[in-house]
């Protein structure tokens, strides 16, 4: 078997707290996942679940407090500054907010050239590459001389994608890259992601709260709930036939743009909730008497 691109084992992430002898806050409680070359691992979860933190740990922007992350067999969980800069060629990122992810004072051309310049490209080659990248993401050539504020959210996100593609990476961490976009823009940007993946063989870790987006782009899916991956498998397995009760709830909570289907889904969700309330309500009563404490307070 070939080594996966990314192999995370029992990954813990904890942020140190300010103040004397205060315990760090653990956000991610030991997750395992692999990303193979050329595939998309979808990470779905709600706000505060830790899905973004998992991505940031791979990028070296969040502190790994336990376990390991390896990239092509090399341990990168505590990579030094110099190692990180070398990794920049292989691991890139597209953030959610296309407004704060581009420096408002830098032209698109300079933003795109920066990662190339730090990799030691000469100016002429970098300029040529910038034009090629703009073309790749469907932006006009004259965009290079313009400022981010002259572009719409969708166009800015294309710039962010171009920046991530610049050094020819093997993996791009995509942190909610289409959540801030309008519906019609969202679909075209997603298609761009897929097209680029087919052409270049880049792998994605695609983080989103939107199951429809995840289904659209992922080969495999991991469901994050309160710092744990509660369910993981192929896209079809996880999203068509979820085993974990949280995944089931998540699936039924997403409204579908079809009035009849949505009515059915809503009734199913309400039925499931009542069932859940009956079970846990009963357990809570038992717990009050000191029985079944552990069961009544599931994570």
């Amino acid at each position: 078997m070939t080594t996966p691109l990314i192999d995370a084992r029992s990954l813990h992430v904890a942020y140190p707290q300010r103040g004397f002898r205060r315990q760090p806050i653990e956000i991610v409680h030991g997750v395992d996942f692999q990303i193979d070359a050329g595939e998309t691992l979808g990470i779905v979860g709600e706000s505060g679940s830790g899905k973004t933190t998992i991505g940031r740990a791979i990028l070296g922007l969040a502190p790994v407090s336990g376990g390991s992350i390896t990239f092509e067999g090399r341990d990168i969980s505590h990579a030094s500054g110099a190692q990180r800069r070398a990794l920049a060629k292989d691991i890139q990122v597209v953030f959610q907010d296309p407004y704060s992810s581009l420096n408002p004072a830098m032209t698109i051309g300079r933003t795109l050239a920066e990662p190339l310049m730090v990799q030691g490209w000469d100016k002429a080659k970098a300029t040529a590459r910038v034009l090629e990248l703009l073309d790749r993401v469907g932006l006009p050539k004259n965009a290079a001389a313009r400022l981010p504020r002259e572009f719409s959210g969708g166009q800015r996100q294309r710039v962010a994608i171009a920046r991530a593609l610049a050094p020819g990476p093997r993996l791009i961490i995509c942190d909610e890259p289409v959540s801030g976009l309008d519906l019609s823009t969202q679909a075209t940007v997603l298609d761009l992601f897929i097209e680029i993946q087919r052409d270049t063989g880049v792998a994605y870790m695609f983080i989103s709260h939107d199951l429809a987006v995840i289904r659209h782009i992922s080969h495999r899916v991991g469901v994050v709930f309160r710092g744990d991956i509660v369910e993981q498998g192929t896209c079809a397995e996880v999203t068509n036939n979820p085993q974990n009760p949280y995944t089931q709830r998540l699936l039924l909570a997403a409204p579908v743009a079809n009035p009849q289907a949505q009515r059915a889904r809503r009734l199913e969700r309400q039925r499931l909730r009542e069932e859940h309330e009956n079970i846990y309500g009963g357990l809570a009563k038992l717990a009050e008497r000191g029985i079944a404490k552990a069961v009544a307070h599931p994570r």
Partner: peptide
């Protein structure tokens, strides 16, 4: 805290 600073870090830009 701006994301473009994070993006620059990920791009291997020195501090």
């Amino acid at each position: 805290k701006e994301l473009y600073v994070d993006a620059a870090k990920v791009s291997g830009v020195t501090h």
